[in-house]
Design a protein around this nucleic acid. Structure first.
Lengths: 148, 148
DNA sequence: TTGCGGATTAGACTCATTCTAACTGATTAG
DNA sequence: CTAATCAGTTAGAATGAGTCTAATCCGCAA
């Protein structure tokens, strides 16, 4: 079942939207709720299915719009793997992604600051990077293969 | 102008294809030639345009097939950035990619072995990764902004 | 020469994403 | 109070990279 937002999360949503001059709407709240309820890197379509459980009339276009808005104001990250459908991730801490080739599941991998630093250090002078994406792919056999 | 393959490159092509039970064909040779002639991470469409200069009758489907074959036998790498068209890269050394947001150009960034090692080390036990992709995006102002 | 199998071809198809134009509903201006 | 405005939402059409299909080609072996 999809829980409602906590007061804290609702404030987080409102603040992030407000900073870029946008408002909380019922649809945005529904989509955000869905993202926080199940942190499994859903595709747009999965978000859409889940959002309709909470708000039956919501449209796919709106789900696209909401997700884009959230990405724009830094509330969620896009996760792309090869040319598969884009997935969404509300984990804001710096992290890499690991994609299990067998199940298609995506797992977050914590990214220690010293690794981030060594990565930045390989850029030759003149290259200024705002975003670094790191993605692994392979197999995850362990028990926690469904977590995260 | 697009040069012919050197003897060395032709052998490389033949050997890699042979290892996975495939043959050198005129189309494959043309596509490979195009990739080596201009190492600028072309899209399929760009490869197609260039290949037609060398072999006017070649079809888009064949260019897709050739590129997929090359990826399959390890001759080239795919480079994906967000959901843009896939690009292709004949640089086999381990390297990251840097995408210039202004020009859309992709540059290779050398990846020292110790950085690779520190990256592998962040994977929790149970995660076995065959492939690591690292991509930066931002601005490259420098003079060599058009190279590689 | 016939047949086989891999490679190539043109064009149809798929499907994630984007676009468009109409509609809604809240807020502001007169 | 109306009317005008404007962001947000909606359904459905359009886009475009990539894939699939069925026909053809071509080198080689029986």
């Amino acid at each position: 079942m999809i829980q409602n937002l906590t007061e804290h999360d609702r404030e987080h949503l409102q603040e992030a939207l407000g900073k870029s001059g946008q408002k909380v709407t019922p649809q945005r709240e529904a989509v955000f709720t869905v993202l926080l309820a199940q942190r499994d890197h859903p595709t747009v379509d999965e978000v859409f299915q889940r959002a309709r459980e909470v708000m039956p009339g919501v449209s796919l276009a709106t789900v696209y719009n909401c997700l884009e808005t959230f990405v724009g104001c830094g509330l969620v990250r896009q996760v792309n793997h090869e040319r598969e459908s884009t997935r969404y991730c509300p984990n804001l801490a710096p992290h890499a992604h690991f994609r299990d080739k067998e199940t298609g599941q995506v797992h977050d991998i914590e990214l220690p600051p010293e690794v981030m630093k060594s990565l930045r250090s390989i850029l030759p002078p003149g290259f200024d990077s705002e975003v670094i994406e790191i993605s692994f792919s392979g197999r995850a056999q362990s028990k926690d293969a469904q977590a995260n």
